[in-house]
């Protein structure tokens, strides 16, 4: 049986991922379309939030992906540092742009959603603030990748930054909760919707979450393939020149 680590061989990964790509894109996009169309056109307004409840189909999945993308990068960094598998380091590099885009979507849709309640476009609500902080961590991670020339050194340093960064991201999440209590006004509208989502809204939400997850998977797959192809071109040129 082909063990999971077999996929770690970059060239083999290229061959196998090309088979998975069409499915990932196809199912992902269709789930997304179903989820959004269903949620946007065929669900009633919420008695409290009116039609803004429709933003849930964007905010919840993107928020979910923003956090899970960083977690995936953390696991990939650990695999790279311990097992030295190129695919996992390059997958982490490919996941970062998708993660930062998801964080941005979560931020903007969160702010727009809260706007009618708060009357302003931005409020330092703990959840929104922690997404803003996560956005900064993504920026640092991408900046470090861009700043280093040698690919292996870059992979090592960004992996260590991701691990150390994760610890501080969790600390920041806790500190932000602590800091907003400090302002003596409780979190006005806490945006974690999972608990009080009525059934009628729930099914389309599942579809759009599935859509976002598969879209993330497809984008990271494509991104990793590009990184491997660039590294392969670099290796060929290294070998080519010395002939």
């Amino acid at each position: 049986m082909m063990s999971l680590w077999e996929y770690a061989n970059p060239v083999k990964f290229l061959r196998l991922s090309s088979k998975v790509m069409p499915w990932a894109w196809g199912v992902g996009v269709s789930c997304l379309v179903i989820g959004l169309v269903w949620g946007f056109f065929f669900t009633p307004d919420d008695y409290r939030m009116g039609s803004t409840v429709k933003i849930i189909y964007l905010h919840v999945p993107s928020a979910l992906m923003a956090i899970n993308a960083w977690f995936m990068m953390l696991v990939a960094s650990l695999i790279w540092l311990i097992r030295r598998h190129h695919v996992s380091a390059l997958a982490a590099k490919a996941a970062a742009p998708v993660g930062i885009a998801m964080t941005l979507i979560a931020l903007i849709t969160g702010a727009i959603w809260g706007q009618p309640m708060w009357g302003t476009w931005w409020v330092w609500d703990p959840r929104l603030t922690s997404f803003l902080i996560l956005f900064l961590f993504y920026l640092g991670y991408l900046a470090l990748w861009a700043g280093i020339g040698n690919p292996d050194t870059a992979a090592d340093l960004t992996s260590i930054l991701c691990i150390v960064g994760s610890v501080f991201a969790v600390l920041s999440r806790y500190a932000v909760n602590f800091w907003s209590q400090g302002l003596h006004q409780g979190a006005s509208l806490s945006l974690d919707k999972e608990e009080n989502v009525a059934d009628v809204f729930y099914q389309p939400l599942l579809f759009s979450i599935a859509g976002f997850v598969l879209l993330f998977f497809a984008l990271v797959l494509l991104g990793t393939r590009s990184e491997i192809q660039l590294r392969r071109a670099r290796a060929l040129s290294l070998r080519g020149h010395t002939k």
Partner: peptide
């Protein structure tokens, strides 16, 4: 992390400031 990089100083700030957040929040609190 930024040893020997061309624009190391600027990159250092972008990497380090987010890591300062917990200390700053609790310190000023």
């Amino acid at each position: 992390l930024t040893l020997g990089l061309k624009r190391g100083g600027l990159l250092l700030s972008v990497l380090v400031l987010p890591l300062y957040i917990p200390t700053m929040i609790f310190g000023s609190e």
